[in-house]
């Protein structure tokens, strides 16, 4: 009985250690909890390869990427990004480079196995459009702004403290975790680099939203 208890304790301890290695922070629930195969089938994730530490790193493909923006920025799916104000960025224009495929016209039966050379640019376009839309909504909402609410969007350049507070909000919304000290220090150093508060807000949103941590799981 004593031996069984010790064994159980060791097993629980090992599981705990393993959990710490796999998840150094809390991630948004949903696609990232799926297996590679099931996520891939839904346009969600997709197994790519392992890091030297043996941990899987998975490309967050178009649907999971879009889902993160819809949820993180509280935007309707249709408002996330449209090229020329009419063509869906995710379902049409940038589908392939964001990890989807187009089987009908092109006969693309497989998705790209990894991000393509143009994926980073498509990511930036989508993030910028989504951040811009959220900013537009928050400006119209006045005191009821949801995301961009830590400094006035017209007038003086935001202070370091205001930018850090805004960054903290964006880290939670995009990456589902608290910003850490060195990250906030980098954000503080960003103060004054962009005088226009709207553009500073969008730039901050782009920097955090398009960081690699929001592209891979």
């Amino acid at each position: 009985m004593k031996l069984l208890g010790i064994t159980l304790l060791i097993a629980i301890g090992l599981l705990g250690c393993n959990h710490k290695v796999k998840k150094h922070n809390v991630r948004s629930a949903g696609a990232n909890e799926e297996t590679d195969a099931s996520a891939n089938a839904k346009g969600g994730g997709g197994m790519n390869e392992s890091s030297p530490a043996g941990l899987n790193l998975v490309w967050k493909r178009y649907r999971a990427f879009e889902g993160g923006l819809v949820q993180g920025l509280s935007l309707p799916k249709a408002d996330v990004c449209k090229e020329l104000g009419q063509y869906s960025c995710i379902d049409k224009i940038h589908l392939t480079v964001l990890g989807g495929n187009e089987p009908y016209q092109l006969g693309q039966y497989e998705r790209p196995s990894a991000p393509t050379a143009l994926t980073p640019l498509a990511v930036e376009r989508v993030i910028l459009a989504a951040c811009g839309k959220r900013l537009e909504l928050d400006k119209a909402a006045g005191g009821g702004a949801l995301v961009f609410k830590f400094f006035p969007l017209a007038g003086a350049s935001p202070s370091a403290a205001q930018l850090k507070a805004q960054a903290g909000e964006l880290y939670k919304r995009f990456l589902a975790r608290e910003a850490e000290g060195p990250e906030l220090d980098a954000v503080a150093a960003f103060a004054g680099k962009i005088a226009n508060p709207e553009k500073a807000a969008i730039s901050l949103c782009l920097a955090i939203g398009s960081s690699a941590e929001n592209i891979f799981l």
Partner: peptide, 14 residues
């Protein structure tokens, strides 16, 4: 469109 990170995005940055 995928060859430029920001051109043509309404209200975006320069």
């Amino acid at each position: 469109f995928a060859t430029h990170g920001y051109k043509g995005i309404t209200g975006a940055v320069g």
